[in-house]
């Protein structure tokens, strides 16, 4: 399952980040490493981007980026 398929109000853990280049590096830098807990907080009014909590801070990212993050729902 990938992060963009998660529904607001749910939590999941990162399995793997499968994104090349800048976006991949950025996600690593922001703490998307295997085992990281992610809570999906909300969708933007037009469903995209999504707002999540990771490592104690809030982050907005587009679904196109979220698609590259493989997760297991909790």
């Amino acid at each position: 399952m990938t992060l963009d398929e998660m529904k607001p109000g749910n939590e999941c853990r990162v399995v793997k980040v499968d994104v090349e280049g800048v976006a991949g590096q950025r996600l690593l830098d922001m703490g998307f490493i295997p085992g990281t807990l992610i809570s999906i907080i909300r969708n933007a009014p037009l469903m995209d981007p999504i707002d999540i909590r990771v490592k104690g801070y809030m982050l907005a990212l587009r679904r196109s980026e979220a698609r590259g993050v493989e997760v297991t729902p909790l």
Partner: peptide
């Protein structure tokens, strides 16, 4: 083009 990954500060 850069990925949209934007921190939401408190």
């Amino acid at each position: 083009s850069e990925p949209f990954i934007l921190e939401m500060p408190p």
